[in-house]
Design a binder for these strands. Structure first.
Length: 236
DNA sequence: GCGACAG
DNA sequence: ATCTTGTCGC
C-alpha cells in the first residue's frame, strides 16, 4: 500500500491527527482473511532515560496451530515523536515496518501490542499497522485507552465483557488468567470483533499475554539488550 | 476549564 | 515502555 510519507512520519500533531482520520477511513472491521497458517506478533522495547530515543522493534512469526516461533526480525530506529497517548502508531510503526521488511514471508494474521479500533479516532496502532501493511490485525492492549467494560468481568480465564464507548461496542475486555488484569481486545484491520477475541484465546498458553505478543515482547527485549554488545567468540 | 490518557 | 530480587500466594 503506497501512502503519503506524512501519514507515516507526520511533521506535527495536526498532520498526524489528519492522517489518522484518513487512515481510519480505510479500516475494515469485518473478516477479510484467508486460512491462518502463520501468525505474527509485534512489539517495541525502549531503554529507560535514553537520550537517543531509540525504538527497538521485533516481529515474530509463529506456526499455527503449534505456536512455535519459526522466524523473527528486529530493527532499531530513532523515535520521531515522543510517546503521546492516542498517537502511538507514529512512534512505533516506522520501526516495525523496517523489521517487517526483513522477513522472508508474511503472516496471515498479526497480533499487535496496543489497541485496534478502540481509539479516539478509530486508529490504534494495530489498525494503523494493519492498514499500512494491508494485513489482518488484532489489537491486544494491557490497559484501556477509551471505553469502559460493560458490566463486571468474571474472575475465570475466558470470561469477557464488551468494551463500550459512546454507545458503541469497540471490542472486548478479556480475562486470560486468574488474578491478572484483563486484556483489551479490538479489531485492528480486516478482522471482526468476534474473530479478534477468538484468535487471542486460541493463542493463549497459560500466560496473561497470547503467545505471539508474548514472544514479540521477549524478542524486542533481546534486540535491545544485544544492541552494542560485542559478539561472543571475538578475539580479546 | 478539568481530568483521562495504549506503549 | 523501563527500573529489579526476592517473596508471597495460588
Amino acid at each position: 500500500m503506497d501512502l503519503p510519507p506524512d501519514w507515516i512520519d507526520p511533521p506535527d500533531l495536526a498532520t498526524a491527527r489528519a492522517a489518522q482520520v484518513a487512515l481510519a477511513a480505510r479500516v475494515v472491521t469485518e473478516d477479510a482473511l484467508g486460512p491462518v497458517r502463520l501468525i505474527g506478533g509485534v512489539d517495541i522495547s525502549n531503554t529507560r532515560f535514553d537520550p537517543e530515543n531509540l525504538v527497538f522493534a521485533a516481529v515474530v512469526l509463529l506456526a499455527w496451530p503449534g505456536l512455535e516461533v519459526v522466524a523473527s526480525a528486529s530493527a532499531v530506529r530513532r523515535a520521531t515523536m515522543p510517546y503521546i497517548p492516542g498517537f502511538l502508531g507514529f512512534r512505533e510503526v516506522p520501526a516495525l515496518l523496517e523489521a517487517w521488511a526483513k522477513l522472508g514471508e508474511r503472516p496471515d494474521l498479526v497480533l499487535v501490542d496496543g489497541h485496534g479500533v478502540a481509539h479516539p479516532r478509530g486508529l490504534g496502532i494495530a489498525s494503523h499497522l494493519g492498514v499500512v501493511l494491508d494485513v489482518p490485525s488484532i489489537g491486544v492492549a494491557k490497559s484501556p485507552l477509551v471505553g469502559r467494560p460493560e458490566g463486571e468481568l468474571g474472575a475465570e480465564p475466558g470470561e469477557a465483557v464488551s468494551l463500550a464507548w459512546k454507545g458503541r461496542t469497540l471490542g472486548t475486555v478479556l480475562r486470560t488468567r486468574r488474578r491478572s488484569n484483563p486484556l483489551y481486545i479490538s479489531p485492528g484491520h480486516r478482522v471482526s470483533p468476534a474473530t479478534a477475541v477468538e484468535w487471542v484465546q486460541r493463542c493463549g498458553t497459560g500466560y496473561r499475554l497470547p503467545e505471539p505478543t508474548r514472544q514479540a515482547h521477549l524478542a524486542a527485549n533481546v534486540a535491545r539488550r544485544a544492541h552494542g554488545v560485542a559478539k561472543p567468540g571475538a578475539p580479546e
